[in-house]
Write a protein that binds this DNA or RNA. Sequence first.
DNA 1: CGGAATCTTGAAAGTGTTCAAATCAAGTGG
DNA 2: CCACTTGATTTGAACACTTTCAAGATTCCG
Lengths: 194, 194
Amino acid sequence: MYEVLFQYIEAKSKQPLTDEERELIQSKFKLRGYRKRQYFLQEGDICKHVAFVVRGAARMFSVDEKGIEHIVRFALETWWLGDLESVRQLTPSHYNIELLENADLLVISTAEAFELRDKCRPFDLMFTAVDYQANIAAQKRIHAAISLTAEERYEELAKTYPEFIQRFPQNMIASYLGLSPETLSRIRKHILNK
Amino acid sequence: MYEVLFQYIEAKSKQPLTDEERELIQSKFKLRGYRKRQYFLQEGDICKHVAFVVRGAARMFSVDEKGIEHIVRFALETWWLGDLESVRQLTPSHYNIELLENADLLVISTAEAFELRDKCRPFDLMFTAVDYQANIAAQKRIHAAISLTAEERYEELAKTYPEFIQRFPQNMIASYLGLSPETLSRIRKHILNK
DNA sequence: CGGAATCTTGAAAGTGTTCAAATCAAGTGG
DNA sequence: CCACTTGATTTGAACACTTTCAAGATTCCG
């Protein structure tokens, strides 16, 4: 299980890990099984752990006054779980993170993650690269949100993350795109008729 | 001029800069004046420089097939200019960065910026912190885009960045929010009548 | 003082939502 | 393994919001 994380760190940091570093990392991350529907983070709690998804799928979402859920992020294998805002500012999170499939997570406390960044260069470089990529992805999504039609946004998503379409139910995809489930259903129908 | 950057780095990194570090940093950044309407980055070019805004205002935008501009980002004093995606992947940028006021920029090549991150710890920590913040801000904007109405998005923007409303024309604010200028005009009218 | 943007306003057209109902699919307990 | 319940998806019709196009008012700058 840990091997997946090691390879991921080496790939992202473009640096090999020494045996000592592997041991150090392994000592900090705890492997934990989660069941479908279980929550990794609950709205109102401060996010004190982050996790690397070895197996499974999750969503991060908020719930508005009307009780409607808004999915800001999905996660699959080799993605990270956690709410950056809450981690950094130590404020209660506005979001929930829920597993959508039975999952294996490598969990680390945020305090230990910070330490690890200091102690282990490849680990630090990995997170720098991940933050970088997350920024690029976020900018693309913002650009899509302000410049594309609903149909174009769906097609872009299907092209960029075909896994999402496979593994997440359609009403969640709709939420992720900022659409009602009915609208997405009609958009898909419209695409088929082309 | 450089003093602003030094203080910014110390604040973001939460580390003091030594005199040697200041000299090193100063030797890498070139101070350049830009005039209103000048472009810092042109669509199609690879972004090989990033800049710290000492004075002035800028926007980053794309132009679609219909010739409509979509503003993905604004920048004011102590913000950074550059297209992360192009910098990191060395691909031609999809965006333009244009100064909206006469400006003073501290410009550094991306290659030297990478070196500086290696050589100067506070500089590296500063960028780590900036990336972090950018991610948080991006997530908030995505959340707003998928969960709020146009009117709510405008009010949130006005609350979060009142400077934007002051310094950028309304049609650009509309573009930033993903609205037509007419719609924003009507929304403002509606807010006044409350 | 003019000319050029920018902002406002109206009307028509387009896009997406809401509500309600029907269909379809999946998971659970007997 | 089937019957049943629950959740997900589809469809229709009415409604709400946003855009588009066009014109007029206002503001900004040279």
